[in-house]
Design a protein around this nucleic acid. Structure first.
Lengths: 140, 140
DNA sequence: CAGAATCCTTATCGATACTG
DNA sequence: CAGTATCGATAAGGATTCTG
């Protein structure tokens, strides 16, 4: 309804109003997706599904240490976000297949770009050659 | 020291071992950076600093509703991550300037790519035309 | 096989008060 | 001006048990 060229707040646009109103950052889709990617299992599950569809137990066996609860919750969240498709085959016993949606596949592009940056960043942070503590020194 | 072409686990590489060992996802730099970008204030602060250096109080005034505690904590985290540089000018009263490091500026690239995807995703999720509940139906 | 339900522990975040 | 310290509320994650 408002006449800007995008009605979704992204924080990175040039026309971000300052002071930044709550609505702008509380609804920021970048923060939203980062929040999901930043939880313990989402990136891993996306990576596995990126190789092809998996059944529930296949995912469970593929991830060392995940609990049923967290696998279920993460898959349900991904499904609600429209990134993963859940298909039930009414066999006995039932079999459920999870696969990436089109949006989920598209997401792997930007995530891979972020991964490139993250690997370099991780190297810089762990390279003792150029290490600068920055926060340390909190001697008590 | 180990001889693979990358010694950092990224989960998205083709040679991800299955079952995925804990070490692979617990140290995944993509999840790490997403975790930070996904907290409540980081993307917003990066966006503001992307426009130029800011002093502490300037940031506080620019963000409606942030507490001193969270502003301090978020800046300290960014500094520890090497994304933000903190410069103290020993005037009276003291003045402290925050700005993006080279790594911080580089990060804005991949984040903008993710933002492009996120805006489209957000539209799809809120478009009533193609809305599919997916999780709803939890009637009690 | 693919989960749902329950309980518990641990982070994250916010409000408030105080300080070199 | 630019923080620190303390407290309480809420959310995320894990272990365990049970089921159509």
């Amino acid at each position: 309804m408002s006449g800007t060229h995008t009605d979704v707040p992204v924080l990175l646009t040039a026309d971000l109003p300052v002071p930044v109103p709550r609505a702008e950052y509380e609804a920021c889709p970048v923060t939203e997706i980062a929040r999901r990617l930043g939880d313990k299992w989402t990136v891993l599950i996306l990576a596995l599904l990126g190789r092809g569809p998996h059944r529930f137990n296949a995912l469970e066996r593929s991830i060392e240490g995940i609990s049923q609860r967290m696998l279920t919750r993460t898959l349900r969240q991904l499904q609600a976000d429209g990134l993963v498709v859940r298909t039930v085959y009414p066999t006995v016993p039932p079999s459920v297949e999870y696969s990436l949606s089109a949006a989920g596949r598209d997401l792997l592009g930007p995530v891979s770009a972020l991964a490139g940056w993250a690997v370099a960043w991780s190297r810089a942070n762990n390279d003792p050659q150029r290490r600068d503590p920055a926060t340390g020194e909190n001697a008590r």
